[in-house]
Amino acid sequence: MTRTSPIRTAVRVAVVAVLSAAMLVPMYIMVVNAFKPQQEILLSPLGFDLATLTTDHIAAAWQNTSFPVVEGYAVTLFLVLACNVVAIGASVPAAYTIARTPTPLFRFLLFFFVAGMFVPAQIILVPAIFVLKALGLMGTLPGLVLFMSSTMIPFTLFIFSGYIRMLPRSLDEAAAIDGAGRQRILWTIVFPLMRPIVATAFILNALSAWNDFVSPQLILGPGSQFRTITTGVYAAVSTYTTNYEIVFPTLLLAVVPILLIFVLMQRHIMGGLSAGAVKG
């Protein structure tokens, strides 16, 4: 460590600082321009004039009926939680059974689930519509939750079963001798030990649910009163992509809350991801 020269450290710090600043430029452009009239956005996209800053466009975006911001956040947060509950809740017992039952049948079952990781979700959406329709779940939130969860299950189950396999078997065997039932062993002994990997799965699933656009777009459809953040932004912006008085304020409203969540939870999110990556 003594060999790291102060010059090299300085260069390193400078490079990191410049790169970080570069990553933030688009954010800066979005924030500044959300408070400017179109003419000024065109004339000076980077600067701002305190005299002409206005919150009119933000207010207009806030009131835009095609993108109800608060509702959009509520629906999207609900999706994040519900999909995680379904995907994790279903994957834990399945992964436990698969990991602890080394018969060919269960090995095949694991393979069957893992194969789903190679099926891109948006691609099977078209045929999934027919299934949801047959179930009477088309255009409903439960239908959407089930579809999104099903696309999360393969990966969740895969990392869970890998993790459980690393947990010492003696733990559950001891509990079994004490007369504990299988469910009890799973939820009171194994599951608490799985916390790091559950956190990883939760974060990854949350990100994919949060970012999903096509599934809510097609499954909910215009008949539903529910809009997610992505479908709301699309409805509000897609036909006005160069009307910057609409684009920047709408995007700003769409990203500020999630960025705040990210900043507050940053350590947990990044930590959770890397914890899973090391152990999974």
Partner: peptide
């Protein structure tokens, strides 16, 4: 936690079906 998926789905079921 174990009950949650069931509860969540039940909750969804009651609020859903608003499409048509």
């Amino acid at each position: 936690l174990g009950m949650a998926p069931v509860l969540a789905l039940a909750a969804c079921g009651s609020e859903g079906g608003s499409g048509d």
